[in-house]
Amino acid sequence: MTVTDLSPRPGPPALVLVAHGSRDPRALSTVRALQDRVRALRPGLPVHLGHIELNEPLLPDTLAALGDTRAVLVPLLLGRGHHVKRDIPRTAAAARARTRVAAPLGPHPLLADTLGTRLLEAGWRSRPASAVILAAAGSRDPESRADTDRTAGLLAARLGVPVLPAYASAAAPTVPEAVAALRAKGRRHIAVASYFTAPGRFATQCAADAPWIASAPLGAHAAMAELVIHRYEQALGTPVTAAA
Rank of each mutant, 00 (worst) to 15 (best):
A180M: 03
H230F: 13
L59F: 08
L34W: 06
P43H: 15
P217L: 13
P13S: 14
A172V: 08
A216V: 08
V47S: 02
R23V: 01
R70S: 13
P57Q: 10
G44E: 03
I190Y: 09
T174R: 15
T69D: 15
T148D: 04
H51M: 11
H83E: 05
A178I: 05
Y195R: 10
R86T: 08
L236N: 12
R183F: 01
S139A: 10
L63H: 15
A214G: 04
P128L: 10
Y195T: 06
P128D: 12
L105Q: 04
P46K: 14
L76Q: 01
A244Q: 15
A65G: 15
R187V: 00
T4D: 07
R37H: 07
P57K: 10
P142C: 13
L49Y: 11
L236K: 14
A156G: 11
G21E: 07
S169L: 02
H221T: 08
D36W: 00
F196G: 12
A180I: 06
R127P: 00
F196I: 14
V163G: 09
A92P: 13
S169I: 04
L115A: 08
R150K: 12
D87R: 04
S139D: 05
A171K: 11
L15V: 09
P217H: 09
V47L: 02
A203I: 04
A27L: 01
